[in-house]
Amino acid sequence: MRGHGQLLGLYVPGHSLLHRTPLALKALLCVGASTPVVLIRQPITTAAGLVLFLLLMTVGARLPLRKVLGALVPALPVLALLALYSWFTRGPEAAFVVPGGIAVCMLAARLLTVTTPGQELLDGLVRLVRPLRRLGADPERFALALSIMVRSIPYLVGSLSDLRDAAKARGLQRSPRAVVVPVVVNAVAYAQATGQALAARGLGEHTDARDMHGENMDGEDSTDADGRDGA
């Protein structure tokens, strides 16, 4: 069974400038710098975006260039096909701008995940939800759901590959149904057991934490999210 470490494992530990930059600032930078590239779609902005993020990754985050480019490898077939298609339909400029824009966004997103521990990213996501509280969102429960999800993935991947092997052993590898039905049934039973355990611990119930602790619990939350250094 795979540990969750692998799942949150894009993070490369380090002490570079970008590792130390707060997540919110990094996120703003990445979105702010990649959006114009996608919207404008001129060779000059695309090239500038590529250079900017390659510099940020190699100099700002002190990552080896090989590793930076390696992140693009899985997307290469798609990017190459897009380039070919754009060349034939709209000429060489489009062949650079369309896949180039996607590459910029990939680098930008990679920058965040490589320099920020996974748990911190999730905490950041929870903070992003916090302003939605007025619309009925509940950041506490959202955070709890995220945690349960992250911790359930290795369990389910494990049971999926176990059952894949079992199906193969019985010559049923061509029957996804033989594999997926038990996985889903297990997942439901597992979710119900987890739900019971949550209820038993007084977690995840809909009434918000306020009436339980006498006062606003979300107010102190920011200290919590900042206090974590990620697992």
Partner: peptide, 8 residues
Amino acid sequence: LSQLVMPT
């Protein structure tokens, strides 16, 4: 395993 909610 059904009781522990967090990864660690």
